[in-house]
Simulated assay, not measured.
Amino acid sequence: MLFEFGIKDFVDILLVAMILYYIYRLMRESRSLNVFIGILVFIITWLFVSQVLEMRLLGSILDKLVGVGVIALIVLFQDEIRKFLYNVGAHRRMRAFVKLFSSKIDGEETKRALKETIMPIVMAAMNMSRGKVGALIVIERTMPLDEVAGTGDLIDSNINQRLIENIFFKNSPLHDGAMIISKKRIKAAGCILPVSHDMDIPKELGLRHRAAMGISQESDAVAVVVSEETGCISIAVGGHFRLRLSAEELESFLTKELE
């Protein structure tokens, strides 16, 4: 009897392909691509031995290894798995679905609070841009940045334009690190971020930009960078840069990403 290929089989293959592609992207971003390829080769070998060749002894050994290997992979890639689950929950369509259950009044209050959060950042960035004062502001979204905030000095203050500018003033002891904004408050400053070693980053971009790219690759945070050399304002989000933004573009982008 010939194998019957139906629409359910097509959907099944499509879903598996999408999952494998997403895992591939996740592993590539975390520089674990060789591990992913090794796991894929092992799975293909296991399926070939147990399903095609039907080798009972070798197949049973590989079955046991797969059972233990799943637990080992969960322990080994717990950070990547947590990031995957956060990304699923933070997906735009998922957030839009959640918003269906929120009231219109809550929506207006959220917009007002969002504007109060964004405008001091935009105004401070523009003033620092004119004075060529280097700055790096990281805005937390769904993935907590407690560990990163712990590397700096805790502040826990309302978001204030003057405070932001004073923290990044050239003679300030905290101006070299990153500022973390969480839950509409300045949580910490002088924080150390993971630096991206991506070879695709333009060479004219300095350490602040590499740190912004690093945190955007390891979390869903939005990083705002003001260049000390050129005064240009840039944003790093999702492992990508938006360079040389105007005040209007910065406000529009932050509103879109943080709503």
Rank of each mutant, 00 (worst) to 15 (best):
F3C: 15
K8H: 12
V11W: 04
I13L: 04
L14G: 02
V16D: 11
L26C: 07
E29H: 09
S32D: 03
N34R: 15
V35I: 09
F36D: 02
I37M: 09
V41Y: 03
I43K: 02
I44H: 06
F48G: 01
S50P: 14
V52E: 09
L53S: 08
L58I: 06
G59D: 08
G59V: 02
I61Y: 02
D63Q: 10
K64T: 00
K64W: 14
L65I: 15
L65A: 02
G67T: 01
G69M: 09
V70E: 08
I71M: 05
I71K: 06
L73I: 01
L73V: 06
L73E: 00
V75N: 02
L76P: 00
Q78K: 12
E80D: 10
I81D: 05
R82M: 09
K83N: 04
Y86Q: 14
N87H: 11
V88S: 00
A90L: 07
A90P: 14
R92Q: 12
R93C: 06
R93M: 05
M94C: 14
R95L: 12
F97W: 04
S103M: 07
S103R: 14
I105T: 13
G107C: 10
T110I: 15
K111M: 04
R112Y: 15
T117W: 14
I121Q: 10
R130W: 07
G131V: 00
K132I: 03
G134H: 08
I139A: 05
E140G: 04
M143W: 04
P144Q: 06
V148H: 03
A149V: 13
T151M: 06
G152L: 06
G152S: 10
D156T: 13
S157D: 12
I159W: 15
N160I: 08
Q161S: 07
Q161Y: 12
R162F: 14
E165M: 05
N166A: 12
N166I: 01
K170C: 03
N171M: 07
L174H: 14
G177H: 13
G177C: 09
M179V: 13
K183R: 11
K184N: 14
R185Q: 11
C191H: 11
S196D: 02
H197N: 10
D198N: 08
M199F: 12
K203F: 10
S216W: 07
E218K: 05
S219P: 03
D220P: 08
A223V: 00
A223K: 11
V225H: 02
V226L: 04
S227R: 03
E229R: 05
G231A: 00
V237T: 04
L243T: 14
R244Y: 07
E248Q: 11
E248T: 01
L254C: 06
T255V: 07
T255S: 01
L258H: 11
